[in-house]
Design a protein around this nucleic acid. Structure first.
Lengths: 111, 111
DNA sequence: ACACCATACCTTAAACCGTAAGGCTTCGTC
DNA sequence: GACGAAGCCTTACGGTTTAAGGTATGGTGT
C-alpha cells in the first residue's frame, strides 16, 4: 500500500539503523545507544522499536546477523548487505525530498 | 504518553496546516491542494488525513472555523488562533531539531 | 555475601496516525 | 443528462512507535 507519500514521517529508525550499519557492523543494544548519541540526544528510539526493526531488516535480507560472544556477553552483530545499501540510498533520497518539500512550504511566501 | 521524541515523524500534516493558516484563512479542500502544490508535489495528504486534523485543531482551539457560502459552494474557513500560533512555533522548532539530529547522524564520520 | 546497575537480548498491549476507499451534494461543461 | 470537479465528511485497516514489561550475565560497591 502507501502509494502517495514515501514511507517517511515514520520509517526514520530504519534509515538510521541502515546508515549506522553502512559504517561498520554493530549490535542491537549498541545501535540504540548510538542513535541517541549521534543525533545529539535529540532522537531516542527504544529497544522495542529497534529490535523489531532489525528483525524486519534481516527478514528482508537488507542485513545479515551473526551471534558472537564478546567479553562474556552474547551479542548479535548485524552487517549491511548489498540490498541494504541500495535501500539506504533510496531512503536517504526520500528523506531529502521530504525535507525539501516541507522546507518549500515553510519558507514559501505565497499569498 | 510519548515522552522521548517530539510528535514528529508523524505530525507533519498538523504543522503544515498550521503554517498555511498562519498566512491566511483557508478551507479544507483548499488546504489539501495547497500542501500538494507548495511542497512541489512531494507531499500529498489525503482528505481522510486533513479533515480529521482540522477537526482536532478546532477541538484544541488552535483554529476557529466559520462556514461561508462562496459562489454557490459551502466552505469551512479556518483561522489560526493565538494558541495555534504558539503551537506552530513549537512544532517548527521540533521539526528543526529532528532534522538537525538526523543530519548529524547521516553526515557523521564516526568510526 | 548481597544489592544494584549496566549490558544484552527479547516480547507484548496499547496508542497513534495516515491511507484507501468510500458517501453525500452542488456546480459547470460537453 | 452525464460526468468531473469542488466541497464536505466517515470508516476500516495497517503500519509504526511507545511504554512497560521479562530474562540472564557481569561488574561494582558495601
Amino acid at each position: 500500500m502507501r502509494m502517495t507519500n514515501p514511507n517517511f514521517l515514520n520509517g526514520v529508525p530504519e534509515m538510521l539503523v541502515l546508515k549506522l550499519l553502512s559504517r561498520r557492523e554493530m549490535y542491537g543494544y549498541e545501535i540504540v545507544k548510538a542513535i541517541q548519541a549521534e543525533t545529539g540526544e535529540t532522537l531516542t528510539f527504544g529497544e522495542g522499536c529497534i529490535y523489531p526493526c532489525l528483525h524486519y531488516l534481516e527478514k528482508e535480507k537488507l542485513v545479515t546477523s551473526e551471534r558472537r560472544e564478546v567479553a562474556g556477553r552474547s551479542r548479535n552483530y548485524y552487517v549491511l548487505t548489498v540490498r541494504g545499501t541500495k535501500r539506504l540510498e533510496e531512503l536517504t533520497a526520500d528523506w531529502s525530498r521530504v525535507h525539501s518539500g516541507i522546507s518549500l512550504l515553510l519558507k514559501g511566501q505565497h499569498a
